[in-house]
Design a protein around this nucleic acid. Structure first.
Lengths: 355, 355
DNA sequence: CTGAAAGCGCTTACAG
DNA sequence: CTGAAAGCGCTTACAG
């Protein structure tokens, strides 16, 4: 037996450092640093020297080692982002916008998916802090309040996004969630429906409670208190549970309309309605959450609550950068963005046979 | 005028350093470093001292400053990833898997979206290298060959994913793209169709050329050389162009089947067929690329070429980590994953009226 | 068994 | 106008 040395260890080409430039033109690293950081004038460095340094830096393809700079400055220009699941289109869109806005503000983003597990959030937070992130943007999950509070207590710049904690003094950027389900519910009520169900996740997080509240308030105000149907879906096997819930709602409760409180719940719902052979909107009128291609291409294009994800995400970045630069605000900043309703065929008034 | 001091600069709680632990128990930082890096035995440090250090570190909630470690070690445990667009579900799934696998191998991921623009790739590469990434995983785009070659010439660990350059000696992890369109085309041929079109992007990248080649070969082998229809779609306004292309193919060329070479092209195609009121598969049979909810929920569930994205992504991470650890291989590693075909209603044989 | 020293590459206060 | 020195927090070769 012998080893075929298919691999041979090749060293990366060494990057040029400040010292390399300095020694190649016979000046100090200090001088080079001043020039390359645009402080030549401030330190009265001669124009000629300035040009020589700049030319040499270009020639040697210098760019600063940010790890070294970060260590020295105690700043990394890194923001850590934690979302529930980056393969969920809602969050991948969010990440895309955050990345873009962060770049504009000269920050880089590292991120991770929590899968709604507080332990994963804790692990990611620890990792990010060890990496030296300057701040965190987090979609908190059920059971993560203590972790969030601990971060805040340690005075680490932090902005929550999509959800927040009522009783934690932490800034956030969120949708007006109560308004969202209000719009949807009122729209279905205007279509003449009475038995309108809400399908939500089974979580105590702010966004969810508010979505329930918006629905219930609209129903009660319309005198439909006796017609409330809130179905809570476990995160564990949502697709299966949505199926059971819809079956129950349609067969037993004879519901006429459904508001889905997230995009994925609605997509599962469409699958289930198809399997149950329930016609939309003839048998059941529906409103989904967040636009997507599935809604567009469904045989009855799906009406939905439109969440201005661009604005929510950009403002979260603006805020975290502001906090990083300015320091923690005494009072929490609450950025609340208004939803609107996109009405299409899936929610439009049925031909009423007996009415 | 006076300023309301709504903000007050609050310093982050200082992290405890090696020195803090050392001085608090009156030993050297060296000793603490040895213990905390599991080298106590190796340096014959007494069991009692070892325990004292560990206890103190725990008490003071020490965790190492990775920026400092990175600077010292010349390694960051960071991998930079560049995809076309993270809000495209194919790439967000890819990123999700890469992130997970990287974590298992003790790496963190930073990423960016190129929008198929070589300048953006260059900018991201520069940024990542300044951040000190240990390696790069890149979805290269048209016009990026020079950039890729330069990275490789600088001996920076690099793995291409999804696409590669025939004449660049750079490792990659890709689908067997020719096989993919072969499977789809042959399937439609088996359904008795002759005029089968291929809708692809207008790019010279490997994956695209291979997808065209697989289609053409299948058609020619089946004696359908006269029935070739390749429609190339510009990246600039793909939805509009798909519409025009399909209109032309259906009205003028009387095509009976279409193979779409990416998920988004197929989604656009579904939109357009709906607008044109073309029934799938009765009037045109179709095969898409990559599974997604849209395909599942379309009135005729869409048959598609299944790309094992998990495997492609995981192997790319395994490979880059191997290259980082081992050094650049002399020969490039080519990881090619096999596709399979998921057949559903959208491609099934039409009721042949005249046949 | 343990510590002092050097050095990763950078920035900046200080000195001349 | 310019340079030597210190220090960010870590690891490790060297010395005792």
């Amino acid at each position: 037996m012998f080893a075929l040395h298919l691999y041979e260890k090749m060293e990366r080409v060494k990057r040029t450092s400040l010292k390399d430039i300095a020694s190649s033109i016979g000046v100090s690293a200090t001088l080079v640093s001043f020039v390359l950081n645009g402080k030549a004038k401030q330190y009265n460095i001669s124009e000629e020297m300035t040009q020589r340094v700049i030319a040499k830096a270009k020639e040697m393809k210098y760019s600063p080692n940010l790890v070294a700079r970060n260590l020295r400055e105690g700043k990394t220009q890194l923001i850590g982002i934690i979302v529930s699941d980056i393969s969920n289109p809602f969050f991948s869109k969010m990440i895309r916008i955050i990345e873009k806005r962060a770049y504009e503000l000269n920050y880089t983003v590292v991120f991770g998916s929590s899968d709604e597990d507080p332990n994963t959030i804790q692990r990611l937070v620890d990792m990010f802090l060890n990496k030296g992130v300057d701040g965190l943007i987090i979609v908190p999950c059920s059971g993560s309040a203590k972790i969030i509070e601990e971060i805040h207590r340690n005075k680490i710049p932090l902005v929550l996004i999509d959800r927040y904690f009522q009783d934690l003094n932490v800034s956030f950027s969120c949708l007006n969630n109560a308004k969202a389900t209000e719009l949807a519910t009122q729209h279905l009520i205007e279509q003449g429906l009475k038995d309108i169900a809400l399908v939500v996740y089974n979580t105590e997080m702010s966004h969810n409670k508010e979505r329930i509240a918006g629905y219930e308030m609209s129903m009660i105000q319309a005198g439909l208190k006796e017609h409330l149907h809130v179905q809570k879906i476990s995160i564990v096997n949502p697709k299966l549970e949505v199926g059971k819930a819809l079956d129950y709602l349609v067969r037993k409760e004879k519901i006429e309309g459904v508001v889905f409180s997230t995009n994925m719940l609605c997509v599962y719902g469409l699958h289930c309605f198809n399997e149950m052979n329930v016609k939309i909107p003839d048998e059941v009128a529906i409103v989904g959450f967040d636009g997507n291609d599935v809604f567009d291409l469904f045989y009855s294009p799906v009406s939905y609550i439109n969440q201005p994800i661009d604005q929510i995400s950009e403002e979260a970045v603006n805020l975290i950068v502001d906090i990083i630069d300015t320091g923690l605000p005494v009072d929490r900043t609450m950025l609340i963005t208004e939803p609107d309703l996109v009405v299409r065929k899936s929610s439009l008034k049925r031909v009423l046979i007996n009415g």
